[in-house]
Design a protein around this nucleic acid. Structure first.
Lengths: 199, 199
DNA sequence: GGCCGTCGATTGACTGGTCAATCAGCCAGG
DNA sequence: CCTGGCTGATTGACCAGTCAATCGACGGCC
């Protein structure tokens, strides 16, 4: 018999951590909560990770590197700048649609918590802003975007708008249905590129 | 002799808390840190406040109610919708310029930490979004704004963009000089109202 | 004036409970 | 029988919140 695929306990712990962090928040979860949720002994968490922080760090890095690749990948495309922004927005919104718990953890505990834990990852977060800024800068060179707005500034506004929407969904401030997701993707881009005032 | 104005220890504690929270973050500050910074005995903090949370809560409510009034006040004005948004942006940016430490604490520990502490104040936070949404809705009725964007959605994008800029300043992701502040006020409004694409 | 009682403000040592992290071994598969 | 994934009781540190004691301003009373 082929040896039973050994359940990957490390993965099991990470997945359990997503659920528990999403439910209780990072600070309020004890390492024993993670172990219990994973159906694993307390000590095993420390066999695979040096600390509770490292568990969260791993979750963040896993997903953030995907985002970084997605942005940079998109930028290499020869699509119109506006389309590139649309692709980035779609990727982030779809990430949330696909795995809301993980995105909640990343946004709430890392991205928007740069003071405590996130400080460690500021460099990676900044890199995402920078990549989006590059798309904007490129659009300006091509005359597709007005050039009186600093690219980094536009990038922050764009990303900030998206993250605020995710936060709204996460905390039930605004409704979150499938159609809301699709509209959101489109409307962020419309808002940022066309503006609120009629053309 | 008029009796010397008794130093208001309560205020002294609140002001010390702003400094310490801004420096170390809420979770990392011990109540003794606040007391030390205020030059006051440990127990006195508990004389004036029921808990460490209540200290932070007080700081938040004090300032957030100002923001709320400012937005609602602005809305009562008969200025153009775009001008109203500009006024709101200016108020927030100026709040940061005037007292960066307090704004850092509010944003990092409450507004962007809705999971842990901020949950208690979700209602007040939502009210700010709602008030901004009202300005947008009004603008749509007057034909000043396109009406195919949900007001609440536009509001979240607008506020999210501003908050992201403040976060950028707070964590030194983007430079923060006096001229940056002034430009930011203007550019958020330009971006949101006119869009990035040339007219 | 001098004395005393009251009461809120202030002090800081102490307690109780919580958890992250360690570590001494267990056991299953080779 | 040996290796290393796995176990979970234990330890040690940390800290929020309590509380009993002291201080000092003020007013009433002789």
């Amino acid at each position: 018999m082929a040896k039973a695929p050994p359940v990957d306990k490390r993965r099991q712990i990470l997945d359990a951590a997503i659920r528990v962090f999403a439910r209780q928040g990072f600070h309020a979860t004890r390492v024993s909560d993670i172990a219990d949720e994973a159906g694993v002994a307390y000590g095993l968490v420390y066999h695979y990770f040096r600390s509770k922080d490292e568990v969260l760090g791993e979750l963040f890095v896993e997903r953030w590197s995907l985002l970084l690749s997605a942005i940079e990948e998109t930028d290499r495309t020869d699509a119109a700048p506006r389309q590139k922004l649309a692709a980035v927005a779609a990727f982030i919104v779809d990430s949330y649609r696909h795995d809301p718990e993980l995105m909640k953890v990343i946004i709430v505990e890392v991205t928007r918590a740069a003071n405590s834990f996130g400080r460690t990852h500021l460099e990676e977060i900044r890199r995402a802003y920078q990549s989006i800024a590059k798309i904007v800068e490129d659009g300006q060179k091509k005359g597709a975007f007005r050039d009186d707005v600093a690219p980094m500034f536009a990038s922050m506004s764009f990303y900030g708008a998206i993250e605020q929407l995710l936060s709204g969904w996460i905390f039930d401030v605004i409704p979150a249905s499938e159609t809301d997701f699709d509209q959101a993707k489109e409307l962020v881009v419309t808002t940022i590129c066309d503006g609120l005032e009629p053309r």
